[in-house]
Design a protein around this nucleic acid. Structure first.
Length: 347
DNA sequence: AAGGCGTGGAA
DNA sequence: TTTCCAAGCCT
C-alpha cells in the first residue's frame, strides 16, 4: 500500500509552492492557511503573505492590522491572529528559532494535532501521522468504516490506522500523498476509483460503498439573522467602524449597523443604533440594497440604507473604533467578504 | 460533545 | 436556491 501510494504521489503530485521548500516557516504558514480552506483559494494569499512577511522575524515585527489586511477575504481570522502571536512568542522566547518537533509545534496557538504533525513530518521528516478531512475519507473507504466519522472512538481509530500505515522513513511524502489522494482521486463525490492506486485494496470499493462513506453527523441548519447597515457619507468620506475584538469577523472593519429583531422597522432600528452606539444623529434615506451572505454557522440578510448626517449635529469626531475614510484609503482597512459586498452596493 | 468560527466552488 | 464541504482549532 505504501509503495503504490508513494509511487502514485511521485508521478501525480501537484506542483505547489509549499512543496518546493522545506523551510519550516513556509510550511507552517501554508498549513495554517490550508485549515478548512481549498488549495486554489490559498495560493494567491500564500504568495502575498510571504512577500509581505518573508521570515518569522518579519512577521513578529509587523502590526496586527497589517497581518489582518493580508488575510482579509480568506476567512477564519483567528488563524491570522494566532499566527502573528505565535511568531512574536517564537522571537521573544526562542530568539526566532522555530520549533523542531511536533510536540513543540503543538504548543503554539492555532497548531493542533493535525497541523503539528503535518509541519514536523513535512519539514523535518518526523515519523508522525496526520488525519485531516481527506485522510478521514480515504481511510474510512479503505477500511469500510461505517461508524460515524465524528465519533471520538472513530477518530481514535483513524489516528491509529494512520500511525500504522505511515511510511516512517518518508513520513512527509506519505502524509501528503494520503491527503493528495483524498483531494484528487478519493473525492467526497464521485471518486475516481478506476485510476486509484489503492483500488485493489479498498474495502469500500469491493463492497460498492465508496459513494456512501464516510458517514457524517448531519449538522443543523444555520440560524438566519436580519441586519441593517448604514452608508454614511460626509465631506466625501465614508463612515467605517471596527468590529469587536472577539467573535465573528473580530477586528475587521464594516459599515455601522446592527441586528434587526423580527418585525422591527429596519430604518428606525438603524437610526437608533447610530445614535446610541456612535453618538451620531443621522437621517436614514433610501434603501440602496439587500445583501445576503452565508457563513458556516449562520446566514445574514443585510438591508443597506443611504444616510446623511443631521445638519445641526456636524461635525462628528471619530471615536477609537470609528473612521471617516477616503475612497483612496479604503485599502488600509481589513474587510471581510460580506463587507466587500456591502461596499460594492454604493459605488 | 458540540458549536463558534469564513469563504467560495460544485452539484 | 440550497446544501455540502475543504490540508482544523478552541472552548
Amino acid at each position: 500500500m505504501r509503495r503504490a501510494l508513494l509511487a502514485w504521489y511521485r508521478r501525480w503530485a501537484r506542483d505547489l509552492p509549499w512543496r518546493r521548500t522545506r523551510d519550516p516557516y513556509r510550511i507552517w504558514v501554508s498549513e495554517i492557511m490550508l485549515q478548512q480552506t481549498r488549495v486554489e483559494t490559498v495560493l494567491p494569499y500564500y504568495e502575498r503573505f510571504l512577500a509581505a512577511f518573508p521570515t518569522v522575524r518579519a512577521l513578529a515585527a509587523s502590526s496586527p492590522a497589517s497581518v489582518l489586511r493580508c488575510w482579509q477575504g480568506l476567512g477564519y481570522y483567528t488563524r491570522a491572529r494566532n499566527l502573528h502571536r505565535a511568531a512574536q512568542t517564537i522571537v521573544a522566547q526562542r530568539g526566532g528559532r522555530l520549533p523542531e518537533s511536533a510536540a513543540e509545534w503543538r504548543n503554539l496557538p492555532g497548531v493542533g494535532r493535525y497541523t503539528a504533525n503535518a509541519i514536523a513530518s513535512i519539514a523535518a521528516g518526523e515519523a508522525v501521522p496526520v488525519v485531516d478531512g481527506n485522510v478521514q475519507r480515504v481511510l474510512a473507504r479503505l477500511f469500510a468504516i461505517r461508524a460515524c466519522i465524528d465519533d471520538s472512538a472513530t477518530q481514535t481509530r483513524l489516528w491509529q490506522l494512520a500511525e500504522m500505515l505511515l511510511a516512517r522513513r518518508a513520513a512527509g511524502a506519505f502524509n501528503q500523498a494520503l491527503m493528495e489522494l483524498g483531494a484528487r482521486i478519493c473525492t467526497a463525490r464521485r471518486p475516481s476509483c478506476t485510476v486509484c492506486p489503492l483500488r485493489s485494496q479498498c474495502r469500500a470499493r469491493a463492497e460498492g460503498l465508496q459513494e456512501r462513506l464516510p458517514v457524517r453527523r448531519s449538522k443543523r441548519p444555520p440560524r438566519q439573522v436580519e441586519l441593517v447597515a448604514a452608508w454614511v457619507r460626509h465631506a466625501g468620506r465614508l463612515l467605517l467602524v471596527r468590529r469587536p475584538a472577539a467573535g465573528l469577523l473580530a477586528g475587521l472593519w464594516t459599515l455601522p449597523g446592527t441586528e434587526v429583531r423580527d418585525g422591527q422597522p429596519p430604518a428606525r432600528v438603524l437610526r437608533a443604533s447610530l445614535r446610541q452606539a456612535l453618538g451620531i444623529e443621522a437621517e436614514v434615506g433610501e434603501r440602496i440594497g439587500l445583501v445576503r451572505h452565508a457563513f458556516s454557522h449562520r446566514r445574514w440578510v443585510v438591508h443597506v440604507y443611504a444616510c446623511r448626517l443631521s445638519p445641526r449635529r456636524r461635525p462628528v469626531r471619530a471615536a477609537a473604533n470609528m473612521r471617516w475614510v477616503d475612497r483612496a484609503q479604503l485599502g488600509e482597512y481589513a474587510l471581510a467578504a460580506v463587507d466587500r459586498k456591502l461596499l460594492a452596493l454604493a459605488r
